[in-house]
Each structure stands twice: as C-alpha cells, then as structure tokens.
Design a protein around this nucleic acid. Structure first.
Ligand SMILES: NC(=O)c1ccc[n+]([C@@H]2O[C@H](COP(=O)([O-])OP(=O)(O)OC[C@H]3O[C@@H](n4cnc5c(N)ncnc54)[C@H](O)[C@@H]3O)[C@@H](O)[C@H]2O)c1
Ligand SMILES: NC(=O)c1ccc[n+]([C@@H]2O[C@H](COP(=O)([O-])OP(=O)(O)OC[C@H]3O[C@@H](n4cnc5c(N)ncnc54)[C@H](O)[C@@H]3O)[C@@H](O)[C@H]2O)c1
Lengths: 219, 219
DNA sequence: GCAATATTGTGCAATATTTCGCTTTTCAAC
DNA sequence: GTTGAAAAGCGAAATATTGCACAATATTGC
C-alpha cells in the first residue's frame, strides 16, 4: 500500500512539515531551504532532507524546495485532499474541547458525529455536531462509514466501548484514556496520555541536565 | 543529577508502569511478572525488564517483582512523593478541560494557578483554581515558585507568552499549540500536538499494512 | 557563459532502542 | 533437602534513527 516504506519517525513529522509549509504559502513565500524549515519546526536540517528524500528528489540543489510543489505533494500523501470524518465517543470535558476545535481548517478533518451515554447530551447538537446515544453507535458508525474514533470516555468504560468500536469496523482509535486498550492487530491505536506526558516532563526536569534535545511529542 | 542515566525511551514509560502498579496495589495484588505487566501496558516484557534493570535488580528471579517495592521505588524517582504545582496559561476550551481534570489523584500534580487575557475569566476562580490576568503572570509564577506551565493559548500568542514564561524562570512547558516555540536550552518543551497526531494516525492507516506495532504516544 | 554561492541528496558512522536467547536465581512442592 | 518450573538479568545481535560531511548540481550575478 505504501510507495516505498517510510520510517515511522519520518511519518510522524510529515504533518508538522505540512502545516508549516501551508503557513509559508499563506504568507506568500514560494521557496524554502531545509535550514529555514529546520528552525521553524525544530528538526535537524539533515533529517528534513532525509525525510523528503524518501519521496524522491523534491528539491533543487543550490536552491531549496518549492513551497507549492511540496504542499501539492504532501497534500496527497497526507490525505489532505479529501475530508476525513471522525467520530467522538465521550462528550465530556475533553470531548467538548475537541468538538469546539476546528480541525478542518488546517487538517481537513471533521468530527462528524458524537456519542455519549448521558441522556442530557445524547440527542442534542453540540457545536454543530449531532450527539447520538450509545445504543446507536455501532449502527451510526457503520452507516456513516467512519473509520476513526476519538475516545474520551471514563477509563472504566474504555475497553468495553473499544470492543464495540471494533465490531463497528473502526480502523483507528485516538485514545485519550490512560488505559492501554486491547484491539485486534488490524486496528491502530494512538495513545494520548496527557497525565503521563506531564509526569515525563517533570521527570526530565528533575533527572536530566538542562541541555538536552528533543523528548518531544507524546511518543 | 541522575543516578545512572536512563534512556529517554525508558523515562517515557515509567509513568505508565507506575500507574499500572498502583492499580495492581489497589486491587490487592502483591507480585507481578514482566509478562503480566507487558500485557497490561503493551510493552514487550524484555523491554520492561531492561527498563527496570537500569535502576538495579528490583525483581527476584523465578518470582517476579514485588508490587509495593516497585511502587515505593518509582514513587521517589517520579516525584510522586511530593505535590507538584503547575500553572495553566490560557483558560479556553482545552484549558478548561484540563482544569477540571484531577491530575492529583493519580499523579500528585495540581494546577495551582491559571492565567488568561480575557477579563471575564481573569480574577475569577475556576474549578477551585484562581485565574489571574496576564499582567500578573510573571510575578505570580515567581512568587508561587512554579516551574512548569501548561500552555493552551491561541497559536499567535504562544511565542510572546513563552518569552515571558522564560523570564519568569519557568523550566518546563507543556505546549498544546501547534507552534514549535523557541526557548533557551535550559527550558524543556513537551509538545502535545493533537491535530498532528490525528493526522499521523490517518497516515498510518492509509500507508502501512494492518499489522504493525507501536507508533504510540505523541512521540 | 563563467565563477561564486547556495543547498540538496546521501554514504556512512554514531547513537539509540529493541529484542533474542541464555544463564542464573528463586520459589514452591514434594 | 531435592527438584522442577518460573522469571529476572543481561550480553550481544538486530533494528531504527539521527546527524556529519561532502560531492553533485542548480542558481544567480556579472
Ligand atoms: N480532562 C482532561 O484534562 C483529561 C486529562 C487526562 C486524561 N483524561 C482522560 O480522558 C478521558 C475523558 O476525560 P474527561 O475529563 O473528558 O471526562 P468526563 O467525565 O468529563 O467525560 C466523560 C464523558 O463520557 C460519558 N460517558 C460516561 N460513561 C460512558 C459510557 N459508558 N459510554 C459512553 N459515554 C460515557 C460521560 O457522559 C461524559 O460525557 C478520561 O479517561 C480521562 O482519564 C482527561
Ligand atoms: N481545543 C482543542 O481541541 C485543540 C486541539 C488542538 C490544538 N489546540 C490548540 O490549543 C490552543 C488552545 O486551544 P483552545 O481551543 O483552548 O483555544 P481557546 O480560544 O478556546 O482558548 C484560548 C484561551 O486563551 C486566552 N487568550 C487569548 N489570547 C491570550 C493572550 N495573549 N494571553 C493569554 N491568554 C490569551 C483566551 O482568552 C482563551 O481563554 C490553541 O493553540 C489550539 O491551536 C486546541
């Protein structure tokens, strides 16, 4: 399915590059060097060149990269040329914050359905997104052919709901609960463990010297 | 400052282990093997043993690890034996969700001050946390000796505010904005880039075969 | 058209991390 | 005690990722 096979570490940086490139394009910049990009996204310039090189020779030696060419290229690679619908399960504190965020603008992603147990929320429309009761979840996901879900339910409920999501044919879950959910191998889970990240930050501050690079990104 | 020097990858997993260990302790379990842990946290058992071994021989061959011993040990390592105060800058959608979350229960972390530009919020108390106007930020951070800040402001304001945070003596920033902020080398930034992670998930679904491990954690 | 300059693309070495496979130790049962 | 099974600890190989350093090549100004 993949052209060549891109290192995972590279894949994780692509959206970052893409966002900065669109920013450059919006401010009228037409060319960019790996050194300039490096400063903006805080990734070593050699790493950027290597990352790009996996996709072929996208730049011109002695000149740099054409911003619009890169955007056109990465737009396809990153599925930014079509809208991706995702669902939100658990419309509580975090869920609401995510609902209110415009993922569409920069990422062409839309939360197109929400699900919640709470009867006061289920059946309403929040920030323009219909919230369904849990009983309708599998059916709605199937019907709307949604393959990606953001999971922001209480930890206790996470595994049971996950099992239902799998039944509904979900392919990817962005999991905000601290539970490491179990899924079949064909389902991909991206854990976003905010408390852990905060603790990791504290650990680094306590145990590592002041000058140390990276440590980034939830990973 | 560090005993030995723990690989970054290991450090990132410690809070995960710690959480599961406290869960085990709460349910009355007194011993655990690397294999059992492995299933719960989805980290290879050899990796877990290696991670633990950086801190010495914490287990007993043929038996496993004593849950309470491990907890006692990691509690110190992870600063869980004392309360860590952090500040929240930008009390909007995301900020509110974080304010309402009890980091103290599992992580002994507390948001003890908030800051916001909006005069309708500044001066109030939200979820038990006083919100100050931006003009008071540097002073309050210094006074309360807060070293860690969660940054949830609009992207445009992120760099300017970061510069002030650095002036206030902040050591660590958990950055929720998509901007890669610039800081001096003695300040550590942990980026939590939700939109990017969602895009990465989509990328993996499109371009990698179904069976592939890991890719986890904002990292 | 030529020289000077900028900047890519990449071989390769360095570094980081994971995983295998085996040895050693401990525990539990008899 | 003795024995068998379980599981840690760890050397070393495998894998993944980064970053240096430089040759190759395009661009720009003259
Ligand atoms: N809020 C944060 O800042 C934060 C930080 C770190 C981790 N988390 C994690 O994110 C998850 C959500 O946190 P939150 O603060 O939004 O919680 P919340 O309690 O505010 O929201 C949970 C939502 O899920 C709904 N819900 C409860 N049981 C359900 C079920 N069985 N099926 C469907 N919906 C159900 C509730 O009605 C509620 O709307 C939790 O696992 C939490 O640990 C949150
Ligand atoms: N909400 C999400 O789900 C989400 C998702 C991905 C990324 N983010 C990022 O997180 C950040 C915050 O998002 P949000 O949705 O909470 O935004 P928001 O607009 O709801 O909240 C921002 C808050 O910052 C305050 N603010 C504005 N300018 C300020 C300044 N100069 N100084 C101090 N405070 C100021 C505002 O009053 C507001 O309370 C943004 O950078 C956004 O891109 C949010």
């Amino acid at each position: 399915m993949a052209e060549t096979i891109i290192p995972k570490a590279t894949a994780k940086r692509l959206p970052l590059y893409y966002r900065y490139l669109t920013f450059l394009a919006n401010s009228g910049t037409t060319k960019v060097s790996s050194t300039e990009l490096s400063e903006a996204v805080k990734v070593d310039s050699a790493t950027i060149r290597r990352d790009f090189s996996y996709f072929g020779a996208l730049g011109k030696r002695g000149y740099g990269y054409d911003v619009n060419d890169l955007i056109k290229f990465f737009k396809k690679i990153l599925n930014q040329d079509r809208l991706t619908n995702v669902a939100l399960v658990g419309v509580g504190n975090l869920g609401h914050a995510l609902l209110n965020y415009n993922f569409r603008q920069a990422n062409n992603i839309r939360i197109s359905a929400g699900f919640d147990l709470n009867p006061e929320i289920a059946g309403t429309i929040q920030s323009g997104v219909p919230i369904y009761p849990m009983a309708d979840m599998v059916e709605q996901l199937r019907e709307q052919q949604i393959e990606i879900v953001i999971l922001t339910v209480p930890t206790d409920a996470a595994q049971d709901i996950t099992d239902d999501l799998v039944k509904a044919g979900i392919k990817g879950i962005m999991n905000f609960t601290p539970l490491r959910i179990s899924v079949p191998s064909y389902v991909r889970v991206q854990n976003v463990d905010l408390a852990t990240e905060l603790q990791t930050l504290i650990y680094f501050l306590e145990h590592y010297g002041p000058t140390l690079k990276d440590a980034d990104d939830a990973e």
